[in-house]
């Protein structure tokens, strides 16, 4: 095990899932090495053993159903096993716990910026707590990007016009490398960031600061103000009473029945969609009269608005 592991010099294991990933990878590496030796080894052995000699006589063999059955069935079973293992590790990468710390990520040519619940923002450096699940809710201002942390074994494309997410639970305090992994133009290879995994105390400090007011309004508070200045309150209340549109109380995460009888979960992408392109997703019992806010809400404002609606979930 050790030799192959060293040869591949896998990156540091910065999350629990990285350990599971490495076990699967090293298992597959061994299996592949055995298969390679089997195929190429027999090939070389045959080339040597059956090299042409003038006195040769070959054996007239056209096939063997038994052998064929073996090399259909055995690989199929092995492949299904690998698939199941791979899927189970993958599930661990995609199912974010509900209590995850949420940080919003914005990619634009060629810089990463971050927005936190407490209203803080950072550029090129992201701060996360150790041993706590963190979920990144990501979008792009221009073209495709991809948020890649090799030490955490996670990667997710960042797509303009929608949110994608990735989560991890860091186990190693310190600084880790972030790459952009989807080609995005001239400085694609310069679109780097650092992820700082903070100890509990440092995270507390960083998050709360010496005085909570030092960073201005929290994200939810920013959203509440935007809710008023952008005119959302004209139709949407925060107390559960319906006006021209449904109330935002209890909306986030709920199942919304649409006019055509289908259901959608009111997640980040649903709210974003309502704000930018309200047609076609109106809640049953209401009349579509909401105007589009496309181009009138910046990506950072959008994050604040969604955070506010989310805060009204319970």
């Amino acid at each position: 095990m050790g030799i192959i592991k060293q040869a591949f010099m896998l990156p540091l294991q910065g999350t629990a899932v990285a350990g599971r990933w490495d076990s699967l990878f090293l298992f597959m590496l061994w299996l592949a090495a055995i298969m390679f030796v089997l195929v190429v080894g027999s090939m070389l052995a045959f080339v040597w053993k059956y090299r042409h000699k003038a006195s040769d006589r070959t054996t007239y063999i056209t096939g063997s159903h038994v052998l064929e059955a073996i090399w259909i069935i055995v690989p199929t079973v092995m492949l299904l096993g690998i698939f199941v293992w791979g899927y189970s590790v993958y599930r661990g990468m995609t199912q974010a716990p509900r209590d995850a710390v949420e940080i919003r990520v914005l990619g634009k040519q060629w810089v990463w910026s971050f927005q936190y619940d407490n209203g803080r923002t950072s550029i090129g450096e992201i701060y996360v707590p150790v041993h706590r699940p963190t979920k990144l809710i990501m979008t792009s201002e221009d073209v495709l990007h991809s948020f890649f942390i090799p030490n955490f074994r996670v990667k997710q494309d960042v797509v303009p016009g929608m949110y994608s997410s990735v989560w991890f639970k860091p186990t190693v305090i310190g600084t880790h490398q972030v790459f952009c992994a989807e080609y995005c133009g001239t400085s694609h290879s310069g679109m780097l960031a650092k992820i700082h995994v903070l100890s509990e105390a440092d995270w507390e400090d960083w998050n709360e600061g010496k005085s909570p007011k030092a960073f201005g309004d929290s994200l939810v508070e920013q959203g509440r103000k935007l809710h008023e200045t952008k005119g959302c309150v004209t139709c949407h209340t925060a107390d559960g009473t319906a006006k021209l549109g449904p109330s935002h109380k209890g909306l986030f995460g709920s199942k919304v029945e649409l006019e055509d009888g289908t259901f959608v979960i009111a997640d980040e992408n649903y709210i974003r969609g309502k704000i930018e392109n309200p047609r076609g997703s109106t809640k049953r019992g209401f009349t579509q009269m909401m105007p589009t806010f496309q181009g009138l809400v910046t990506e950072t404002e959008m994050n604040a608005l969604i955070a506010y609606v989310k805060s009204l979930a319970h």
């Binding site: 599971r20 791979g86 993958y90 990468m93």
Partner: peptide
């Protein structure tokens, strides 16, 4: 086969 395996692909794709 490595790349066909979901978890492995997440880390390896675009590298």
């Amino acid at each position: 086969i490595f790349l066909a395996t979901l978890a492995i692909d997440v880390h390896m794709t675009d590298t």
